[in-house]
């Protein structure tokens, strides 16, 4: 696809998503618009997709495994909740969340990437458990298991985002910007270096690409996406406690990216959509949901390791040929 067509499709999707919660009957279109809960779920999908984009950058483009995305989301969420309660504007908290998680990413990745390919997986695993312990135990700052309640939604240029539709639009705008930035990075020489790394690391290195530096920066950037997603998550749910940032959710982030299609641009959105919507659809069988999901993942890995996006693009390619 050429640059202008993909931009056009992206813009079209953006407009459709922006209209999703609006009642279009006034404009002569028989569509009532999503209700409050639907809009909330859609916003949650966007926030999850931002964090998943970060994981995709690390897994799909740099070929590393990260098991700490939920911890980074947690750091962003707690930081935002704590400092906005102390009166700091949301914009500052958002930037600080991104910056802090980027720095932590460098600090975690630097020693791990020195050693062996899979050490990053173990280091991030340990980091997630450590973070969860801190969130749970340090009551004086995180509220422990009681969590932090009544997190205010921010005001944007004097425009209060208390209303769920306005907050959705705000998150949608940020998601669009972050998606565009990532799209630009992946297509820049920097991103091309990654493709080179993935396809042929030996040749890439002989062409002067510093493999470790690139991998480290990708990990830090992907983690920062997690932190910024967390910064949006806190005002979205308005109450945070340690449970969504434990090891289990970190593993689920990894699964959703691979299910969607790691290394593909749309994969994280598809994966996040499944991860957010599937529990809603399977509400009646709540206890079975994770069981079904796990089996689904194992079957996917055995038959379509490219994920849903990989599978679809293969089908499209086959149709185009015949």
């Amino acid at each position: 696809m050429s640059t202008s067509t993909s931009l056009l499709i992206g813009l079209l999707l953006l407009v459709l998503l922006a209209l999703a919660p609006v009642d279009l009957n006034d404009f002569g279109v028989p569509y009532p618009g999503l209700r409050r809960y639907g809009t909330y779920i859609l916003t949650l999908w966007l926030v999850t997709a931002i964090a998943a984009m970060g994981v995709n950058l690390i897994v799909g483009y740099a070929g590393q495994e990260t098991l700490a995305q939920a911890a980074f989301v947690g750091i962003g969420a707690y930081l935002t909740a704590i400092v906005t309660k102390a009166g700091v504007p949301f914009g500052v908290a958002f930037a600080a969340s991104g910056l802090l998680t980027f720095v932590i990413g460098i600090a975690l990745g630097f020693p791990a990437l020195r050693v062996q390919k899979h050490y990053l997986a173990f280091v991030t695993l340990a980091f997630t458990v450590l973070c969860w312990l801190v969130f749970r135990n340090e009551q004086w700052i995180t509220g422990g298991v009681m969590g932090i309640r009544d997190i205010e939604r921010p005001t944007f240029l004097g425009w209060p985002l208390r209303n769920h539709i306005r907050f959705y639009w705000f998150v949608l705008a940020i998601t669009a910007i972050m998606t565009f930035v990532l799209w630009w990075i992946v297509r820049s020489p920097w991103g091309r270096a990654f493709t080179a790394l993935r396809e042929n690391p030996l040749r890439a290195e002989s062409l002067g690409i510093d493999v470790r530096l690139y991998t480290l920066l990708t990990f830090a950037l992907g983690s920062a996406y997690g932190g910024m997603a967390g910064s949006l998550y806190a005002p979205l749910v308005e109450f945070i406690d340690p449970s969504p940032f434990a090891l289990g959710p970190s593993l689920l982030f990894m699964l959703m990216v691979v299910i969607g299609g790691s290394g593909t641009f749309l994969g994280p959105f598809v994966g996040a959509g499944i991860a957010v919507l599937l529990p809603e659809w399977l509400r009646a069988w709540e206890t079975w949901y994770l069981l079904i999901y796990a089996v689904l993942v194992m079957v996917m890995m055995a038959f379509f390791p490219g994920g849903i996006v990989g599978l679809l693009s293969r089908l499209v390619a086959r149709k185009a040929r015949s």
């Binding site: 897994v59 070929g63 495994e65 390919k117 899979h118 997986a121 289990g248 593993l251 990894m254 699964l255 691979v258 790691s262 206890t287 079975w288 994770l290 069981l291 999901y293 796990a294 089996v295 993942v297 194992m298 890995m301 055995a302 390791p305």
Partner: peptide, 21 residues
């Protein structure tokens, strides 16, 4: 390695949930 890593993560969830349910 990656598909296998993902699959064993899914297996861990499957075993845990099976015992629980």
């Amino acid at each position: 390695v990656l598909p296998l890593v993902i699959s064993t993560i899914a297996l861990s969830i499957l075993l845990k949930e099976s015992v629980k349910d």
